[in-house]
Amino acid sequence: ITFYEDRAFQGRSYETTTDCPNLQPYFSRCNSIRVESGCWMLYERPNYQGQQYLLRRGEYPDYQQWMGLSDSIRSC
Rank of each mutant, 00 (worst) to 15 (best):
T2K: 09
F3P: 00
F3S: 00
F3N: 01
E5M: 14
E5P: 05
A8R: 11
Q10E: 09
Q10P: 00
Q10L: 05
Q10T: 13
Q10S: 07
G11V: 02
G11W: 00
G11M: 02
G11I: 00
R12P: 08
R12C: 07
S13A: 08
S13I: 12
Y14T: 04
E15N: 14
T16L: 12
T16H: 11
T18W: 12
T18E: 10
T18C: 04
D19E: 07
D19P: 02
D19S: 06
C20T: 12
P21H: 04
P21N: 15
Q24G: 12
Q24P: 03
P25C: 15
P25H: 03
P25F: 07
Y26A: 14
Y26F: 12
Y26K: 08
Y26W: 06
F27C: 04
S28N: 13
S28M: 12
S28I: 10
R29A: 14
R29C: 14
R29L: 12
C30I: 06
C30F: 04
S32N: 01
S32P: 01
S32V: 00
R34Q: 09
R34T: 13
R34P: 01
R34E: 02
R34W: 08
V35G: 00
V35D: 01
E36A: 13
E36P: 12
S37P: 02
S37R: 11
G38F: 02
C39V: 11
C39N: 05
W40I: 11
W40D: 01
M41Y: 12
L42N: 00
L42R: 00
L42E: 00
L42A: 06
L42H: 00
Y43V: 00
E44L: 10
E44A: 09
R45V: 04
R45F: 12
R45A: 09
N47F: 06
Y48R: 02
Y48F: 02
Q49C: 15
Q49R: 07
G50M: 00
Q51P: 03
Q51M: 06
Q52R: 07
Q52T: 06
Y53N: 07
Y53A: 05
Y53L: 10
L54N: 09
L54M: 08
R56W: 09
R56I: 07
G58C: 04
G58H: 02
G58F: 02
E59Y: 11
E59T: 04
E59P: 11
Y60L: 03
P61I: 05
D62Q: 07
D62H: 06
D62F: 13
Y63D: 07
Q64H: 15
Q64M: 06
Q65C: 11
Q65N: 12
Q65S: 09
W66Q: 13
W66P: 11
M67F: 06
M67W: 13
M67R: 11
M67E: 05
G68W: 11
G68Y: 14
G68C: 15
G68L: 09
L69N: 08
L69P: 07
L69M: 04
S70D: 07
S70Y: 13
S72G: 12
S72E: 06
I73E: 01
I73Q: 01
I73W: 15
R74A: 13
R74P: 02
R74W: 15
S75N: 00
S75Y: 02
S75W: 00
S75F: 00
C76F: 02
C76R: 00
C76T: 11
C76G: 15
